[in-house]
Simulated scan of single mutants.
Amino acid sequence: MRVTIDTDVCIGAGQCVLTAPKVFTQDDDGFSELLAGCADGVDDPMLREAARACPVRAITLHEEG
């Protein structure tokens, strides 16, 4: 699954990082970003929950295949 974060919408709540710390981190300004190696595809059981936990829906999941 491919993941994108709308950086214009992200408010840096950090719910994604708390929910899926193997996928998300926060930059120096506190906004969410993907960890290295996660931009091309992610297989984490908490990914859908992390997207649902985002209070501003800045995370989009793209099914592949």
Rank of each mutant, 00 (worst) to 15 (best):
I59N: 00
G30H: 05
G41L: 01
G41Q: 00
A13L: 10
E64R: 06
D28M: 06
G37T: 02
T60Q: 07
L61Q: 01
L35G: 03
G30I: 02
T19M: 10
S32V: 04
C38T: 02
V9N: 12
L47M: 13
L18I: 10
R48F: 08
A53R: 03
P45H: 12
R2G: 04
A53K: 02
G14P: 14
A53W: 02
C10R: 07
P21R: 03
F24G: 11
T60M: 07
F31Q: 11
T19I: 07
K22S: 15
T7I: 14
I5E: 09
F31Y: 15
T19W: 08
D40G: 08
P55F: 01
G12K: 07
H62D: 07
R52I: 12
D27Q: 04
R52E: 15
A50K: 06
D29P: 08
A50M: 08
D44W: 08
P55T: 01
V23G: 12
V23R: 10
D28F: 04
E64L: 07
V9D: 13
G65H: 05
T4G: 03
A50F: 06
V3E: 08
L35K: 12
V9S: 13
P21F: 03
V9A: 14
A36C: 00
T19H: 09
V42T: 02
D6T: 09
M1Q: 08
G41P: 01
E63C: 02
T4F: 04
V23I: 15
E33Q: 10
P55S: 01
D8V: 14
C54K: 09
E49V: 13
V17C: 11
Q15H: 15
T4N: 08
C54T: 05
L18D: 13
F31T: 11
C16V: 09
I11R: 10
D29S: 14
E49M: 13
T19K: 11
T4I: 06
I11Q: 14
V3M: 12
G14V: 13
V56Q: 02
R57L: 01
D40L: 04
S32D: 02
G41T: 00
T25V: 04
A36W: 01
L61R: 00
E49F: 13
E63S: 07
G12Q: 08
T19S: 10
R2P: 06
G37L: 03
M46T: 12
A13R: 14
F24K: 11
M46P: 05
V9K: 14
E49N: 13
V42S: 02
L18V: 11
A20E: 06
A39K: 05
V17T: 12
L47Q: 09
D29N: 14
I5Q: 14
V17K: 11
V23T: 13
D44A: 09
C16H: 09
A58F: 00
G14D: 09
L34R: 09
H62S: 05
K22N: 15
D44N: 15
E63Y: 02
L47W: 09
E64Q: 10
A36D: 08
D28G: 06
E63P: 06
D28R: 03
E33I: 04
A53V: 01
C54F: 09
F24S: 10
D44Y: 07
I59H: 00
Q15P: 05
R48A: 15
G30N: 05
P55E: 00
D29A: 13
G30W: 05
D6G: 13
F24Q: 10
D8H: 14
E63A: 07
Q26P: 06
R2W: 05
K22Y: 13
